[in-house]
Amino acid sequence: MQAILSGAGPILVFMACVALATYAQNLTGFAFSLILLGLVSVFDIVSVNEAANAATVLSLINAWTYFRARPGPVPWQLMKPALNGSTVGVIVGLMLLVWLSGSAVVWLKGLLGVSILVCAVLLLLQGKPLPAVSGRTSFALIGGLSGVLGGLFSASGPPIVFHMYRQPLDRELVRRALLLMFAFNSLVRLVIVVPTGHFSWRSALLAGCAMPVVYGATRLHHRLPNKLQPRTLQWLVGGLLSVAGVTLLATAWTAIAHG
C-alpha cells in the first residue's frame, strides 16, 4: 500500500499542476504547456520529455473541450500560413529534443526556463495593436518559430502569442486562433512521436489521469467565467510564469556550475 501511495503522489501533484495550467489557458488563451512544464520541472515530478508528451495530448483535449463549449467559426484561413510554418518547426524542435535529452538535460531545463520568462515578459508588456493584420510571410515565420518550441516542449506560446495579441483582431478570435495553433502543433507532434517510440507508458499514464481534470476545469470555467479585469489576469499569469522560469533557470545554473 505504501508503495502505491508513493507512486500516486507524483501523479496527484501532476494533476494539480494540470488544473492550474488549464485554468490559466482558459483565462488567457495560452500558457497551458509553459505553466505545466514549468511547475512539473520545479517540483521535479517527471522528465521534461515525458511532461511534454503528456502536455501534447492534454492540449488537444483542452482545445476540443473549449471549441465544443463555445461553438463558432475556427480561423483556418487566418492561421493557415502559421500552421504550414509550424509543421516544419515542430520537426526541427523534435530533432533538437532528441539531441538535448541525450546529451544535455540540464541545458534543456535552462532553455525551458528562458522560454517561460520570455512568455511572461511578452504577456506583461503587450503594446498597442498594429494598424493592419500582418502578412502571410510574417505568420509563416512566426509559426515556424512557434513550431520549434512546440516540438521541444509542446509549448508553442511565446512567438505566436506576441504576434497574435498585436493584431487588430477581436480577443475571442485571437483566443480561438491560438487554441487552433496549439492543437495543430500538438497533433503534428503526436503523429511523429508515437510511431517513433518516443512516447513512453508513463507519459500515457499521466495524460490519461489528467484528461478528466482538463475537461472538468474547462467546463467549469465556461459555466463560471471569471470577473477579473484582463490586466489583473495578465499579471497573475505572468507572475506565475516568472516564478517558474526563474526557478528553472536557477536550478539549471546551479547544476551547470557544479557539473
Rank of each mutant, 00 (worst) to 15 (best):
P159V: 02
L173T: 04
R175C: 00
Y165H: 15
F153H: 09
F153A: 04
L173S: 05
R166C: 13
L145R: 02
V174P: 00
L152E: 00
D170N: 13
S138Q: 15
R136I: 05
P158T: 07
E172L: 07
S156L: 13
P158N: 08
S154H: 09
L141H: 14
P168C: 10
H163V: 08
M164C: 14
L173P: 04
R166D: 04
G157Q: 11
F139N: 05
G143W: 05
Q167V: 03
R136L: 06
I160P: 00
P158A: 05
S146Y: 02
M164L: 14
S154M: 09
L169D: 00
V174H: 09
R136F: 10
A132P: 07
L149D: 01
V161G: 03
R175K: 11
L141G: 15
H163F: 15
P158K: 08
L169P: 00
V174L: 05
S138E: 11
S146F: 10
L169V: 05
L152R: 05
S154L: 02
F162A: 15
S154P: 05
F162H: 15
G151M: 07
F162G: 14
G143S: 10
V133A: 13
V148D: 14
V148N: 14
D170G: 03
R166L: 12
L141Y: 11
L173E: 06
S154C: 08
L141K: 11
L141F: 13
Q167Y: 03
R136N: 09
S156H: 12
L169S: 02
V174W: 03
L169T: 06
F153W: 10
T137K: 12
Q167E: 00
F139E: 06
S156Y: 10
G147S: 11
G143A: 11
R171I: 08
S138Y: 13
V148G: 07
A132D: 14
L145F: 15
A155D: 08
G144N: 04
S134P: 00
Q167K: 13
R175M: 01
G151T: 01
V133H: 01
F153V: 03
R136S: 14
I160E: 01
S154K: 07
A140K: 08
G147C: 03
I160V: 10
E172W: 02
P168W: 15
P159A: 09
G151F: 02
Y165A: 15
A155C: 02
F162K: 14
I160H: 06
V148W: 07
L149N: 06
L149P: 06
L152F: 05
Y165I: 12
P168A: 09
G157R: 00
E172Y: 07
V148Y: 12
Y165E: 09
S146P: 01
S156D: 13
L141T: 15
M164W: 03
V133T: 14
V148C: 04
L169I: 14
T137W: 14
S154R: 06
L149E: 03
L149Q: 01
L152C: 01
V133Y: 08
R166T: 03
S154Q: 13
S146N: 04
L145N: 09
G150P: 00
Q167D: 02
A140F: 07
